[in-house]
């Protein structure tokens, strides 16, 4: 069993997921096995190893800041589940 306790309720909240009780139990059990497997990385000595976030030696990729019409107007707002003339609609915030 993994040495780390997995607080599934807290993680679900961070991930903005509302899990059913049944899902919580099943997923928490599965995470025990997955984390136990992942814990084998502790066998590796990575003291002097640099992390890799990207495989290619990419530096900042810059381009000229030119105004271009890449996307068509009027195509995006209608994709929203709820919208009004020129804005997205969500439940009341305050």
């Amino acid at each position: 069993m993994s040495s780390v306790s997995f607080d599934i309720e807290k993680i679900a909240l961070l991930a903005r997921l509302k899990l059913t009780e049944e899902e919580q139990i099943r997923l928490a059990r599965q995470f025990e096995g997955i984390l136990e497997h992942i814990d084998q990385l502790n066998q590796l000595d990575t003291e002097n190893v640099e992390p890799t976030s990207h495989v290619l030696p990419l530096q900042n990729v810059f381009r000229e800041d030119e105004v271009k019409q890449i996307f068509e107007d009027g195509k995006y707002l209608p994709l929203a589940p709820r919208q009004d003339k020129d804005h997205y609609e969500v439940p009341q915030i305050i």
Partner: peptide, 15 residues
């Protein structure tokens, strides 16, 4: 650090 950073370092070793 224990997971994500460790994973990135393991990725270096695999590479």
């Amino acid at each position: 650090d224990a997971y994500y950073l460790k994973g990135q370092k393991a990725r270096t070793l695999i590479k």
